[in-house]
Design a protein around this nucleic acid. Structure first.
Length: 282
DNA sequence: CTGAGCACCTGAGGGC
DNA sequence: TGCCCTCAGGTGCTCA
């Protein structure tokens, strides 16, 4: 499920329950995700500890205790689900965190991930940004209000880059959080063809593109994210941004601007959706 | 160095 | 009904 807005919504939903909560137990049903889960470290360093803060870096959710950090990535199909009791384990529940919140309420946080592309990491210390999961990540699209330093950095990186702009945007070492849905959506809103080379964009086009990326991500966060197949919200609610998608998944349907049919193509193995008329390939 | 391709894994949906 | 194919919100490795 996750691009930046979905992870942001997850963190916001979990904050009230987990901030200040004690991790009483961690139950591992299986540890063979994309990387082996850090079972030893979690048991040794997290159990019995109080979660002092929750945050996000790119598509990673970060927990910190008094002295350590834990990093979580949802892959393609991962989600967290909160329960008041320990329900019977389902096929794809890989880890359950039993926590006691400050209000003395017990909660069970399930990590469910059919495809097992998700990952969890442990970092001894509060300087989680040194962990290899996040140490090479690029800029946060929403950290820069107004976006002028973002424009500056991306424009500079783009000058000698012949990559297609959509692929360029999805490269997390430049810019984090923009995945396959929001890359197509932001490019449509900026009226830029996904296949144009990064270096073919003018400074002014980057100004527009960055603004549209920020707008798209902010709207998606307000809508609670995009829910396609999987539940997003830990209490089981869906996001609603799928109803505001203008191009993603709408191949053959009329463009909301010009009414011509939207098209789909493949870039680096991923589907791209666009309007050939509103997003001219100059 | 770059960029394309593929691998990782399961499930859903379409065509026959 | 069932089989086979393709596709899916991400990332990181290998190879040219």
């Amino acid at each position: 499920m996750p691009e930046l807005p979905e992870v942001e919504c997850l963190v916001n939903a979990l904050k009230p329950v987990l901030t200040g909560a004690i991790v009483e137990d961690i139950i591992f049903h299986r540890s063979d995700l994309r990387d082996p889960l850090p079972q030893e470290e979690f048991n040794h360093a997290l159990k019995g500890q109080r979660i002092s803060s929750l945050g996000r870096r790119g598509k990673y959710m970060i927990w910190t205790t008094e002295s350590d950090s834990a990093l979580f990535h949802l892959g393609m199909s991962g989600r967290f689900h909160l329960e008041e009791t320990l329900p019977p384990k389902c096929k794809h529940t890989h880890v359950v965190f039993k926590v006691k919140s400050p209000k003395q309420k017990k909660a069970y946080l399930h990590y469910i991930d059919p495809r097992r592309f998700g990952r969890m990491g442990f970092h001894a210390g509060l300087d989680f940004e040194k962990h290899s999961f996040v140490s090479n990540l690029g800029l946060e699209p929403l950290a820069d209000t107004g976006g002028s330093s973002l424009v500056k950095s991306l424009f500079k990186q783009s000058r000698d880059c012949s990559q297609a702009i959509k692929v360029f945007l999805m490269d997390a070492s430049r810019l984090v959080g923009v995945g396959n849905i929001y890359a197509s959506e932001a490019l449509f809103r900026a009226k830029i063809h996904p296949q144009r080379s990064a270096k073919s964009l003018s400074k002014q086009e980057f100004v527009i593109l960055v603004a549209q990326i920020q707008e798209t991500l902010k709207s998606a966060i307000e809508a609670g994210g995009t829910t396609l197949k999987d539940y997003l919200h830990p209490e089981g609610k869906n996001g609603s941004f799928q109803f505001e998608l203008k191009v993603y998944g709408r191949v053959g349907k009329p463009c909301i601007n010009c009414r011509l049919p939207l098209e789909q193509m493949r870039q680096v193995g991923r589907s791209t959706f666009f309007c050939p008329s509103c997003q001219p390939n100059e």
